[in-house]
Design a protein around this nucleic acid. Structure first.
Length: 810
RNA sequence: GCCGAAGUGGUGGAAUUGGCAGACGCGCCGGACUCAAAAUCCGGUGAUGGCGACAUCGUGCGGGUUCAAGUCCCGCCUUCGGCACCA
């Protein structure tokens, strides 16, 4: 079979006949199948792209043949750091390299044989798209969901530039090797934390991998506890957050984060030097390097004291970088006896450690004791359990006006400012008189200028473009400056699935009437690496836009599947530096896109992936040629004949195959679906060689016809060709997927195993309608069984119809 | 450290959710066709012992529940992902 030319032939026919064009009048039967769009960094698709797009395209084709109107669009996540870095290295402008890469990748995606409707293509770096990214920014801003505040960035003092986390290697700049420090800049945030609770609750209803949902739950990190207010001698007050209010009588100190706003005020003159030194020291350590539990706890005494509201005790106020400024209140109470970290800190600085919880059975004496237990040395609360004491103590504090129940989330607001060129400009103008002014919507898009010096030299690249920066204030008309930052690319990808169904609308981001019919996405397919970022941001955008009235659904992706990763032959992630990258091109050139796709679907479990090996890719060719020979043998328009015994057996296999392939497609179990197809082919060969010229030609033809239809999603070009060879109508993808005839699966009799003491000793054939008693009788009469039971005492007999009989003897 | 997933022949991977472990392939062995080879077709293939029918063992390790465990429970080991001082 000439796979290469067959592919060209059908790709042209499909394009000429606009076969994959989505019919908007049929949204009642729509299925929105979406693969995560790709980043056009390299010029070529790699094996991972194939593994994502090939099998999921087969799934889309299967749905189409099941009678759905499938919407399967494709686009590119085109802004981002790699293109900019590439530009810095080579001088090729990011826009030029990106658009060129996109063109190449479009061609390759067509070569895979993907059934994408390119009329709906979306490219995030084009003004007609990012205009609406900016529009969404403005809606969030209006709603109070976009705001500015100071936040640290990774700053290389040598390059004078901001670095992304992945550009910081072991605390040093990846480019020059100089140490990286944290520096505060005023930056834009999206207030995703407003949606923390709904983002958490919504997970329960989603058909997503449990693992991914667990990761999001953990990322959101809901924690129920309480806040407790401590008052200082100066009259200043601050609160701590704790989940263990029951340990409050054991507080022997409190710790503020070094960046806590009260630190300077509370520091006494004698302690000023020590505190300043400590703050300088922690500023040197980038946040990502604040490495966890293994790092020794450090801190400094402020010289001030505060009052424990529950017992009036005077406790010292410390600062320490083991307290995270951005979580809770940025302050914790120190209970050395009942927290591992507090214990280490108290031990190091000789702070009091007093037990206030003992184990319920009094067994555990060691400190720190971090389990729940019973209160001691806790005044009126003595004898209560942890579970009783927490609400009781918080209730009392609330009555005193000194705290109460509080829920915290680990989730932080989303920092979207990037001090980079190749991204979507932020549509805000800074005016000396009017302050922060949103760009009026009729002035969108704020275009990213082409001629910009993006070499890293300490300034945001856009800041150096006078043409871009200088504008007039929309309110007062005086000269003003634009915001020089661009948005995180995750902003662009947080709404692209909303744009696809209405991709060319130049009046709005999307028409609510259209997307309310087209969304949510029915099946979303992509890598597990997006579990927390992209998938969470997209959910946030959907909910925020819903609350603004732009759409009417709660979740963007009803059902989600992660494909596994194809690793290099050595079992490691493919990477250029390891030299273990498998290029699909050579295989595609040799075997064709269909065979390569089918091999990927057969040789791996789709969800799991695994190390690449080419063993067996030849067998796919062999298999397809076996199918072709059947097609050649199948004769159309033969007279109808009664089905004999051999035909009934084959018909059983045919319908069993249909049922199993149907079920396997729905669970993305492509490898087993193909295994069933191979079995069907084996059965067809057996039938053909057994009966030769005496076979039922009409029946044989219909079986082979079903085979071609079943095969179509897996090998689209080949099946289209085979369908044509058989005289079937164009296109095979306009034909219906075969349906399973349940009556063909009903057998008169079936075989089951007979066990004696759980070991298979014989096989029996029983009528299909036999009940347990009859099956038991047949089993006991079976000669081998009968002989083995001679002189044995049958204790009991278990009969599982359709499975086995187990006779227990002594 | 915490959370999650996985561990099955020489090999990629199956197993209707507690019911005949190893489907379907690859590889290997044998046979048919052929002067021969390739291609193709058919058969065999977990391990050990036995000429043999058969027996024993076998799903990371050790226990347990059950007539029956790859699957459930308890305790470990290893690998891979995620989180990482979140009070």
């Amino acid at each position: 079979m000439d796979f290469i030319n067959i592919e060209k032939k059908w790709q042209k026919t499909w394009a000429d006949t606009r076969l994959y064009s989505f019919d908007k009048s049929k949204t009642d039967k729509k299925k929105y199948v979406l693969e995560m769009f790709s980043y056009p960094s390299g010029a070529k698709l790699h094996a991972g792209h194939w593994y994502n797009y090939g099998p999921s395209d087969s799934y889309a084709r299967y749905l189409r043949m099941k009678g759905y109107e499938v919407f399967q669009p494709m686009g590119f996540d085109a802004f981002g750091l790699p293109a900019e870095n590439y530009a810095i290295k080579t001088g090729v402008h990011p826009q030029d390299s990106t658009l060129k890469n996109i063109e190449t990748m479009e061609g390759q995606l067509k070569a895979i044989g993907g059934s994408f409707d390119w009329d709906y293509e979306v490219v995030t770096c084009l003004p007609e798209y990012y205009k609406w990214t900016q529009w969404i920014f403005l809606q969030l801003y209006k709603k109070g969901l976009a705001y500015r505040k100071q936040a640290p960035v990774n700053w290389c003092t040598d390059c004078n530039t901001v670095l992304a986390n992945e550009q910081v290697i072991d605390g040093c700049c990846e480019r020059c090797g100089h140490p990286v420090i944290r520096k505060n800049l005023t930056q834009w945030f999206f207030k995703i934390t407003d949606y923390a609770e709904e983002l958490l609750q919504g997970l329960d209803k989603l058909d997503w991998p449990e693992k991914t949902k667990a990761m999001q739950r953990h990322w959101i990190g809901k924690s129920q506890g309480g806040e407790i207010e401590f008052e200082c001698a100066t009259g200043d007050k601050f609160r701590v957050f704790t989940t263990r209010a029951d340990t409050i009588f054991g507080v022997s100190y409190v710790v503020l984060a070094p960046e806590h706003p009260l630190v300077d005020k509370l520091t006494t003159p004698e302690q000023k030097q020590a505190v300043e030194d400590y703050k300088a020291q922690t500023a040197k350590i980038a946040e990502i390097d604040r490495l966890s539990t293994t790092r020794e706890k450090t801190g400094a005494f402020t010289g001030s004291y505060c009052i424990n509201p529950i017992n009036g005790e005077r406790v010292p106020i410390w600062i320490g970088d083991y307290v995270v400024g951005s979580y809770g209140t940025g302050a914790v109470m120190g209970v050395g006896a009942h927290d591992d970290r507090d214990f280490a800190f108290a031990d190091k600085y000789n702070l009091k450690i007093e037990r206030v919880i003992k184990s319920a059975d009094g067994s555990a004496d060691d400190l720190p004791y971090c389990e729940h237990g019973v209160l001691v040395n806790s005044g009126e609360f003595d004898g209560m359990t942890t579970e009783e004491a927490i609400p009781a103590i918080l209730a009392k504090l609330e009555k005193m006006g000194k705290g109460g129940v509080k829920t915290n989330y680990r989730l932080r607001d989303w920092l979207i400012s990037r001090q980079r060129y190749w991204g979507c400009p932020i549509p805000i103008i800074h005016c000396d008189h009017c302050g922060e002014v949103p760009v009026p919507e009729d002035q969108l898009p704020v275009k990213l200028p082409y001629n910009v010096d993006f070499t890293p030299d300490g300034k945001s690249p856009l800041l150096k473009s006078e043409e871009f920066m200088n504008t007039t204030c929309p309110i007062c008309g005086r000269p003003a400056r634009r915001d020089p930052d661009t948005m995180d690319t995750f902003v662009c990808s947080s709404w692209y699935f909303l744009r696809y169904p209405d991709a060319h609308n130049d009046k709005m981001a999307f028409d609510p009437e259209i997307i309310n019919k087209m969304l949510p996405v029915d099946k979303y397919i992509g890598g597990a690496e997006h579990a927390c970022m992209h998938l969470l941001y997209a959910r946030f955008f959907t909910k925020a836009l819903r609350d603004m009235g732009y759409l009417n659904f709660d979740e963007p992706f009803t059902s989600l599947v992660h494909q596994g990763t194809i690793l290099g032959p050595d079992g490691n992630k493919m990477s250029k530096s390891r030299g273990n990258v498998i290029s699909p091109d050579d295989y595609v050139k040799k075997y064709g896109a269909d065979a390569f796709r089918m091999y990927l679907m057969f040789g791996f479990s789709y969800i799991e992936g695994g190390p690449w090996n080419a063993n067996g890719i030849d067998s796919i060719i062999k298999f397809l040629e076996r199918v072709e020979r059947l097609v050649i043998k199948a004769k159309k328009n033969q007279p109808k004949q009664e089905l004999g015994k051999a035909e009934k057996e084959l018909n059983y296999v045919r319908n069993y195959t249909i049922g199993r392939v149907d079920a396997d497609m729905q669970t993305f179990s492509f490898n087993t679906a193909i295994a069933r197809l191979m079995e069907f082919v084996n059965a067809l060969y057996k039938y053909d060689s057994d009966l030769g010229d005496n076979k039922n030609q009409e029946f044989f033809y219909s079986c082979v016809d079903d085979l071609v239809l079943l095969l179509a999603p897996f090998v689209p070009h080949v099946s289209e060709e085979l369908n044509e060879m058989m005289g079937g109508p164009y296109s095979v993808f306009n034909r219906a997927f075969p349906t399973c005839d349940e009556s063909a699966l009903v057998k008169d009799e079936y075989e089951l195993a007979v066990q004696i003491n759980s070991r298979v000793k014989a096989k029996i054939v029983v009528p299909s309608d036999a009940d347990a008693e009859q099956i038991k009788a047949i089993a006991l009469e079976e000669p081998t069984v009968k002989a083995l039971l001679e002189g044995m005492n049958v204790v009991k007999t278990i009969v599982i119809p359709k499975r086995l009989v187990n006779i227990v003897v002594k």
